[in-house]
């Protein structure tokens, strides 16, 4: 008897060690997963409604439920949104806005990242008198409401002959992308060991060759983060597009708003939702492809340098 109980006892002694075995359906789990599921529904609902509405014909929308999947799938709203939807007198669809956005996006992303990465580089390894003051102003500039600087920039662009042009808008995106991107690059570059920089200096490398041959190749991840940040940010911009370009150069977001919120004509909700979804596709694509890098990009603004 005694012999038999001892091993049993030691076994029970050993058992409570480690994590307490969890029941799958404990009250705690129900609460946690319940909360997460309810909120997930809230987040997913608009995407679902957008897709479903964009695949229905107008008669079905008038009769049915916006949450229900289409009885008869049609891609006509997509075609119409892309190539026939009207803004004012133009009826060539969202495609024009899409190509405008692409034309704005590519130079803006490249220019803003080049400028900001050089800034970050100079601020980390080539500090000069007053460089930290400029950096501080830059960071504070990120918080100044754009409305305060809208008109002075109109004047500057007019003086430069760029007001209403694509390049004017590119310049505006470069300026307003600078604070966050410079912070991003400065924070990343300051984790690079200074010995590396010094060794390159001893070998006779100058400002630009260290940047191009050493820093850039070893900082590719942060460039990818910056690209993600800028592509979504610039694609989603509305205010600058509306202020600094002319109607035939309007980016996709502005054109989308003009299509959907136009007061003329019969409202075609399916075309509107297809257009909305089309405008959201580029940032959504970037988001789903980039995964955790996207999180890193948006968190960069919150992490102090």
């Amino acid at each position: 008897m005694v012999d038999a109980t001892i091993p049993a006892n030691t076994r029970t002694d050993a058992e409570p060690r480690g994590a307490k075995p969890k029941r799958a359906l404990s009250g705690r789990n129900i609460m946690i997963y319940g909360t997460l599921l309810v909120f997930s529904l809230y987040y997913l609902l608009p995407l679902w409604v957008m897709v479903m509405t964009s695949l229905k014909g107008m008669p079905e929308i008038r009769m049915g439920n916006i949450f229900a999947p289409p009885v008869e799938i049609t891609f006509e709203p997509w075609v119409k949104a892309w190539s026939q939807a009207c803004t004012g007198l133009n009826c060539d669809g969202l495609s024009r806005g899409f190509w405008n956005s692409v034309q704005i996006l590519i130079p803006s992303v490249i220019l803003s990242i080049v400028v900001a990465s050089v800034n970050g580089y100079a601020l980390t390894f080539w500090k000069f008198k007053g460089s930290d003051i400029f950096f501080t102003i830059l960071i504070f500039g990120a918080f100044i409401p754009y409305q305060v600087m809208l008109y002075p920039i109109v004047i500057l662009l007019r003086e430069m002959g760029l007001y209403g042009s694509l390049w004017g808008l590119v310049l505006v995106h470069t300026i307003f992308g600078m604070p966050i991107l410079t912070l991003l690059f400065r924070n990343y570059f300051s984790t690079i060991p200074e010995e590396l920089f010094k060794a390159a200096r001893v070998d006779g490398a100058g400002f630009w060759s260290i940047y191009a041959k050493i820093l850039m190749p070893m900082s590719l991840p942060i460039f990818v983060v910056a690209i993600i940040l800028q592509v979504t940010g610039i694609w989603n911009d509305f205010l600058f597009g509306v202020v600094y370009t002319k109607p035939d150069l309007y980016p996709m977001t502005v054109q989308l708003n003009n299509i959907v919120n136009s007061v003329q004509g019969v409202k075609e909700y399916n075309v509107n939702m297809a257009a909305t979804l089309l405008t959201g596709l580029v940032p959504l694509f970037i988001y789903f492809v980039s995964g955790k890098l996207f999180v890193r990009g948006i968190a960069a603004g919150a992490v102090k340098g």
Partner: peptide
């Protein structure tokens, strides 16, 4: 939870206007 953050306010506003 995070995908709406990738979308513009224009898209957000229009979807909720519809819902």
């Amino acid at each position: 939870m995070l995908y709406p953050f990738a979308l513009s306010f224009i898209v957000t506003g229009l979807v909720w206007q519809w819902i």
